[in-house]
């Protein structure tokens, strides 16, 4: 009955505290009080239990179980209290619209402009100097702050630690010989100056027992004695491409399931990876050690703006 309300406003009538809205919400407050008190008691016991459990260094389940039941009881009792043992309501309050009146608007604008004009009118040059000085400070402050965070990328995205003659070694520094891997097996290898390196990590696969593996025209010498090596950093988002499917001769990236063809230049055949895995050219030296002919001939891993290059 909105009319009733405006009536009240007009006459300014006050609402008596005897009004039903002010009475306790519960039909039977005594019973509710008992329920709430019991619930508080449960929480009290549980909190004490938590103290004992903590003292005894009990299990996680005991600690959390007691504490959780404690909070549960405490919270439930308060919700019961707040729901049933408070004034029944409903109450209302007035709400003014946010929009202001034309006069209010004009008044504040006037204050702002009138006093402001004394300070800022005809002080354009001063303002420009303030802005200029502030800007210089801003730029200068930004410089050491940002610049000291880390080195600029420079050429670091283009090279790994592999170079001509690098021995192919395992993470604990053991140089691998051509005779070390059996057909179909795989090892994660590094150059000796970067064992465990996140960027030079490379998968070495013995695809077949001998003969050279030519994965692409122009790579006739890259795969000696049945070995091939690819960068282990996925060209999609950089996860280690570590799952080798021996039957199909494919490498799988565990992160978003890109599949790469090991015998066909590491081209991606499934999933989101956009580019082939870069291949590391290998040779076997006169003592039978596997070594790199050179660094990768393209940046490894995911793409970046300056990379350009081929699809």
């Amino acid at each position: 009955m909105p009319d009733q309300h405006s009536q009240d406003e007009k006459t300014g009538a006050l609402v008596s505290t005897d009004a039903p809205q002010f009475q306790v919400a519960a039909k039977n407050p005594k019973r509710i009080e008992k329920v709430a008190a019991l619930t508080f008691f449960v929480s009290l016991v549980a909190f004490a239990g938590f103290g004992a459990a903590f003292w005894q260094n009990a299990s996680n389940a005991m600690l959390g179980g007691t504490l959780g039941v404690g909070f549960l009881g405490f919270g439930a009792a308060m919700v019961i209290w707040g729901r049933y043992l408070t004034p029944r309501g409903p109450f209302e309050e007035e709400r003014a619209m946010m929009a202001t009146t034309r006069e209010q608007h004009d008044e504040i604008v006037a204050d702002f402009v009138v006093r402001g004009r004394v300070a800022f009118g005809r002080r354009g040059f001063l303002g420009a100097m303030l802005a200029a000085s502030g800007a210089v400070f801003g730029i200068v402050a930004l410089f050491p702050l940002v610049r000291s965070l880390g080195p600029l990328p420079k050429k670091s995205f283009y090279h790994t630690k592999w170079k001509r003659g690098s021995y192919v070694s395992t993470v604990d520094g053991r140089r691998l010989k051509a005779s070390d891997l059996t057909e179909g097996s795989l090892a994660t290898v590094f150059p000796e100056n970067d064992l465990g390196g996140a960027l030079s990590q490379t998968v070495l696969i013995r695809v077949q027992n001998g003969g050279s593996v030519v994965t692409m025209p122009g790579r006739e010498t890259w795969g000696p004695e049945g070995y091939v090596a690819y960068s282990k950093v996925c060209t999609h988002a950089g996860c280690p491409v570590g799952l080798y499917e021996q039957l199909t001769k494919q490498l799988l990236c565990p992160c978003h399931q890109s599949l790469f063809e090991v015998t066909k230049g590491g081209i991606p055949i499934f999933g989101p990876a956009p580019r082939p895995l870069p291949q590391l050219p290998l040779y076997v030296d006169s003592s039978g050690y596997l070594r790199a002919q050179a660094d990768y001939d393209e940046p490894i891993g995911p793409g970046f703006w300056e990379r350009g290059g081929t699809a």
Partner: peptide, 15 residues
Amino acid sequence: PSWELHLPGHMIPNV
């Protein structure tokens, strides 16, 4: 899909 945008000397990577 495994697309990237290749521009002369630059690229916009898949991710």
